[in-house]
Design a protein around this nucleic acid. Structure first.
Length: 209
DNA sequence: AAGAAGATCAAT
DNA sequence: TTGATCTTCTTG
């Protein structure tokens, strides 16, 4: 039985030690948390874990620059990169300083809750479900770009324009295979808010890359 | 110097 | 199912 501490009450920012654990655990527990970015906010409804050890899909496996990034930044740092030359993907660095647990959590979908008007402008779409239902979409909706690579996503203040993750009431989570990868496809490291309509790909509909 | 691959998205 | 678009890394 774990006693709930003051820092875990809804609305409080996640602290750095949340990301000083196994990336798979972090990815699963991030579901249901709130991501705030300037005036916009959403509930995290889909994530994926990428691990430095035993995961050939992780950037650290085939990109020296990713290994350098992991070595030179603390847990909770944003890892943002351009995919397919067009879309920014937002990740959080996971890094346990006391063992070999290292990797990333990719934020794949949000349920929009604040700043919908701004998101609509940036996305050029109207329906809430078209705003943040994919990693490229949510980065675009929030205005996250390569400029934010290396910035801190934990311990954010309480101002309305804060950037980072915040505690929120927990919700049911299910696991599935990851999207769009060609290696280590069997790992069930995609996590979804059960029954939520704002995910990128529904549970059980992953197609081979 | 050149080529290939890649954690996506929207239109056809 | 296909085209858009570009950075990182590998090979010659």
């Amino acid at each position: 039985m774990v006693t709930k501490t003051e820092s875990e009450s809804p609305g409080a920012p996640l602290s750095r030690d949340f990301f000083e654990r196994d990336p798979v655990v972090c990815a699963r527990e991030l579901i249901g948390k709130t991501l705030k970015w300037d005036g916009c906010a959403g509930i995290v409804v889909e994530t994926e874990a990428y691990a430095e050890i035993g995961d050939e899909a992780c950037h650290t496996f085939f990109r020296p620059s990713a290994r350098t990034f992991v070595a030179s930044h603390p847990a909770g740092t944003a890892y943002v990169y351009l995919n397919y030359g067009m879309y920014w993907l937002t990740n959080v660095l996971v890094k346990n300083p006391e063992n070999g647990d290292r990797g990333f959590v990719l934020i794949r979908a949000l349920e929009p809750v604040e700043g919908l008007a701004t998101m609509r402008e940036r996305r050029g779409r109207e329906k809430p479900r078209d705003l943040c239902s994919g990693p490229g979409k949510l980065s675009m909706a929030l205005g996250i770009t390569g400029d934010h690579h290396g910035s801190c996503l934990v311990g954010a203040g309480s101002s309305a324009k804060a950037r980072g993750f915040f505690h929120a009431p927990s919700i049911a989570v299910i696991a599935d295979r990851r999207i769009g990868i060609s290696r280590s496809q069997a790992l069930p490291w995609r996590f979804l808010a059960e029954g939520n309509a704002h995910v990128s790909v529904p549970f059980g509909r992953v197609r081979p890359a």
